[in-house]
Design a protein around this nucleic acid. Structure first.
Lengths: 186, 186
DNA sequence: TCGTTGAGTCAACGCCTGTTGAGCGAAATG
DNA sequence: CATTTCGCTCAACAGGCGTTGACTCAACGA
């Protein structure tokens, strides 16, 4: 026999989760515009109307799908800031679908752009706080957008030269560039 | 009196150019999916059917709009490669609409992605050819994606910290990072 | 056991999209 | 002047989209 049929509340939670997972995957793959409610529903093996019932409309479904826990980072020395950024990239070899979904749509979906600006802004502020020099905000912004570019090139555009490199090799090659920005005096 | 009414062929060329300019601007602003033929036509003060007559379909209109003359660059020393990249960024303070259109859609429109991969690939090869070391391709790819990230952050996401900086300050801050990648031995 | 709840489905609406073919009217041609 | 050419517009189509309200039926509570 199969399992003893989960109670209603539990079933409901699981279905919603299945929809959310399907949405994340499709948003990450195709972006906001090319992802249809119907496709999400089909992928979650559910009726399109149910998706609406759960999330109200497509924009809210997207907002829910890209919500991600911001990693609690501590400001420290410039070297630590560099390693923290590189670690982010290390993790990014398996970037969570929620983040990929946000990145994929950030250039074409206004709300995704707002989320991206907010997320990146926080990272810039955090990195900037640990850098010396009066142009620390600018250098922090550059360090952050550098990682953005590498991530985009690697995860979304899938450039061969980056795909072929191991995460460690990538981090090792990038480290000197980030250090040069973190502490220009050294 | 007004001008002596241009001949038919001339008028035709001007109209087509007006459509193409409108398309470039809208594609750059909103991306492929959110730009409608109708909106392009309205912006060019023309009937939507005329756009189809000129370009066949939306994809071909986009392809025509993002076509841009690749800058003839010469491979030289690593330092020259760095300066060449930075100059690109300097130019990018007023990046041509055709390039912006391509960048805006590269994450969500498959054909824009292909064009981006091709363009970036060429730049990587060109930069890589002028770098020493056996991991030159990887480092060239990083240098290229770094500029991609900074451009995206500056031109498309419009991050405050980058917007506030002058082109020169930006190039100056970025130079050491690129040099660290161009010649890790130095 | 019986009425109630609520998860999930069905069928349809209105809208907007890319795209098409017929037609108009002024410029070109003789 | 008569005829052809062709730049351009008009009206409409088919398809896909987000979204909605009525409905079904199994799990629940008394």
């Amino acid at each position: 026999m199969t399992e003893p049929a989960p109670p209603r509340a539990e079933r409901r939670r699981r279905t919603e989760q299945r929809v959310l997972d399907a949405a994340r995957e499709l948003f990450a793959e195709r972006g906001f515009e090319r992802t249809t409610i119907r496709a999400v529903a089909a992928s979650a093996e559910v009726d399109p109307a149910l998706v609406m019932q759960y999330f109200g409309n497509k924009r809210r479904l997207f907002a829910e799908a890209v919500r991600v826990a911001g990693p609690a980072g501590s400001a420290g020395s410039p070297e630590e800031a560099v390693e923290q950024l590189l670690a982010t990239l290390g993790v990014k070899m398996r970037l969570p679908p929620a983040s990929l979904a946000m990145l994929r749509s950030m250039l074409t979906h206004p709300e995704a752009a707002a989320t991206a600006r907010e997320t990146l802004g926080r990272q810039v502020a955090q990195v900037g706080a640990s850098l010396p020099g009066e142009d620390a905000p600018l250098r922090a912004a550059l360090m952050t957008t550098i990682l953005l570019g590498v991530t985009v090139g690697h995860q979304l555009l899938e450039l061969d030269e980056l795909r072929e490199a191991s995460p460690d090799a990538l981090a090792a090659a990038l480290r000197p560039a980030l250090r040069a920005l973190a502490d220009p005096g050294a």
